[in-house]
Design a binder for these strands. Structure first.
Ligand SMILES: [Mn+2]
Ligand SMILES: [Mn+2]
Ligand SMILES: [Zn+2]
Ligand SMILES: [Zn+2]
Lengths: 168, 168
DNA sequence: TGTCTTATTGAGACATAGACTCAACACAAA
DNA sequence: TTTGTGTTGAGTCTATGTCTCAATAAGACA
């Protein structure tokens, strides 16, 4: 190991699977086939997803013996959040997951028309959060911030001239 | 009507029930007994509550013919949010409601130990929100901001010296 | 490499919040 | 009053997630 890296750099350099194995071992848990399949799949692409979609994708990825069951998907998602690999959001009452490990801090704009999520980062937000918390002697562990509204694209759609059929 | 009040002042002076009647009429809906009972009850005290609690309270308030059914409670809560009388929060995946009409804007600190909500207001928060939205040409209709952590009281509880039984 | 302990798994039942269906009912306009 | 239609409550249904438990498979150790 070169001494030009700090311990933190090394930790970030771990793959999600390696990082998860570290977590599992620290908890006396086992590195199993279903957990490996699931983590590989989840970290094969960066996007927001829900449990149901993941269950579908995994079940059509491998039928029979190598498939990952519904309970295992739910159990693993919880573990991955605990391990700090995934972040769980609540969008309009639904649970949505996304990469946390190795992905920059951010919050979301949620378009209530097309249901798309748009990411942004604000240093000031955390400052306000911490200032308010300090005032109330509240120890912060995190936050959920979602801005609701209508995205550019959907605004343009709405502005289109109405067709005859719409005017009846 | 004295001319020292603006139209807005007059609107705010409407009782929640009056405001709701206005909304119902504007939508061609009817002012019914169940809706009246529910609104009266909800606005009899200011607190955060969920659908289930409301269903319980209403059912033990009046049994038999004057009781409000579960579907009607859910339907009315949705209407009251639409009418701008109530605000719906998502706390740890659960739907929580609170007064919006006539109550000052605020956001929440959520203690993950005792599940209590603490209110605060920040002008700057809205500014950041609007600045970010403007950058992405996003039309804001609202936001959800919840700061998670541990309240003062629960911090003190945790700091108590451990009892013998805890050290075994 | 085989043995053994124990965490994990998948099938399927269960739980919970909330939405839907529909016939009886009650507003409110005429 | 009468009448048209929005509303209601009982019951059913759906979505999302959890629990139970017998069979299985990690992985520690010999
Ligand atoms: Mn994101
Ligand atoms: Mn509040
Ligand atoms: Zn959109
Ligand atoms: Zn607390």
């Amino acid at each position: 190991m070169s001494d030009q890296f700090t311990l933190e750099d090394v930790n970030v350099a771990l793959s999600p699977m390696e990082r998860f194995e570290e977590y599992l071992q620290s908890k006396g848990k086992r590195v199993t086939q279903p957990r490996r399949i699931l983590v590989d799949h989840v970290f094969s692409k960066h996007e927001h997803f829900d449990a149901d979609t993941l269950i579908d994708e995994l079940s059509k990825m491998a039928a029979g013996p190598n498939r990952v069951s519904r309970p295992t998907v739910y159990r693993s998602l919880t573990e991955l959040v605990e391990a700090g690999l995934l972040r769980k959001l609540d969008i309009a009452g639904r649970a949505v997951y996304e990469h946390d490990y190795g992905y920059p801090d951010h919050d979301h704009l949620y378009c209530t028309q097309c249901q798309q999520l748009f990411e942004f980062h604000s240093e000031e937000l955390a400052k306000i959060r911490d200032a308010v918390a300090k005032e109330q002697h509240f120890r912060v562990t995190g936050h959920k911030f979602i801005v609701n509204g209508v995205c550019v694209e959907c605004q343009h759609k709405a502005r289109r001239p109405k067709r005859k059929v719409d005017l009846i």
